[in-house]
């Protein structure tokens, strides 16, 4: 399924088709196209429209109020916290997942015995739901005991408070919030890294296997050390995979909802809140449909800034 190619798309000419034969294939594609047109583009437009109205009560109202919902959000303590948390989570999650994935891939790829077993152990969390991960990690990282119990027995006298910490480092005043890395986010990011690093490993493993051994061997014969071979030959060849990974992980991280919802919720002072959780709560618990729509549109915008250029460049590349 083309898993080793750098891009997701493959272009090749199809069958020669006569004009009279065009109708049936187009007709077969039509239901899907219509469904996507309505359920994706139609509904997005509708959400966009709602975000400009005053529908913030259970009963529907639709007075046009311009950008008021967006103005509210950007001056809102909770939403400002969400943006900070998303940034912190994204950086931690992408960085750690990729490092971990690359490291695991290198380990598994180094001609070891029981390779399949290790690979399976590292990938299996991908088969789990974020809900299961959240429920279990909430238990593992429970600050009163959990992993701290093990840390204490190893002599750590003041173990971290994990997701219950309200600490933010460094504490920089910005807008209404303290800007920095909320310590509680680290705990959530750890759970997400646990779940996704097997995926990064699988991607890198596919990449490593596609680098010819001859190339590495000839570099070694020329006197390159293992470190140099890795830096000068392997890493550059893995760059397209790293790029894809960044895009995939970043869009997961911008959309993240279920893991945090199941593991911590918004947290004290919203230290683990993210736009996905805020949108859900304000819309379905608070009946602030217009504000919820505003949050959803901001999430969509962030994801689009990432995905649209990626889609365009992938299509261009494969078309050549």
């Amino acid at each position: 399924m083309g898993e080793c190619s750098s891009g997701p798309f493959h272009w090749r000419e199809g069958i020669m088709i006569h004009r009279s034969e065009r109708a049936i294939p187009i007709l077969m594609l039509l239901p899907s196209v219509l469904a996507i047109a309505i359920f994706v583009y139609g509904f997005i437009s509708w959400t966009g429209y709602v975000s400009f109205t005053d529908w913030n009560t259970l009963v529907r109202t639709s007075h046009f109020i311009g950008f008021d919902n967006y103005k509210f959000l950007f001056q809102d303590f909770r939403f400002q916290s969400d943006l900070r948390n998303t940034l912190a989570f994204t950086v931690l999650f992408i960085g750690l997942t990729m490092l971990c994935g690359l490291f695991l891939a290198r380990m598994v790829d180094s001609k070891i015995k029981g390779e399949a077993l290790f690979r399976n152990i590292f990938i299996f969390p991908m088969a789990l739901s974020f809900i299961v991960t959240g429920v279990v990690w909430q238990w593992v990282l429970n600050p009163t005991t959990g992993i701290n119990l093990a840390l204490k027995s190893m002599g750590v006298s003041n173990p971290p408070k994990w997701f219950t910490s309200t600490l933010i480092i460094p504490k920089l005043h910005l807008g209404l919030i303290d800007f920095g890395l909320p310590v509680a986010i680290i705990a959530v990011a750890l759970a997400a890294v646990w779940q996704m690093s097997g995926f990064a490993m699988a991607m890198y493993l596919a990449g490593l296997r596609s680098i010819s051994e001859d190339l590495r061997e000839s570099a070694r014969i020329d006197g390159a050390t293992e470190k140099q071979v890795f830096r000068k030959i392997v890493l550059p060849q893995l760059k397209p995979i790293s790029m894809s990974l960044i895009i995939i992980l970043a869009h997961i991280s911008l959309k993240i909802f279920d893991l945090i919802y199941a593991m911590t919720g918004p947290g004290a002072m919203f230290v683990t809140d993210v736009p996905g959780v805020y949108m859900f709560e304000t819309t379905f618990r608070g009946n602030h449909y217009a504000q919820g729509s505003g949050i959803a549109m901001i999430m969509l915008l962030l994801v689009s800034l990432l995905i649209v250029p990626y889609l365009i460049s992938s299509f261009r590349k494969e078309r050549e």
Binding site: F43, V50, P275, G276, T283, S293, A296, M297, M299
Partner: peptide
Amino acid sequence: FIPYQSVLIPL
């Protein structure tokens, strides 16, 4: 790729 939050209310 879309966040499904952006279609949820009309859906």
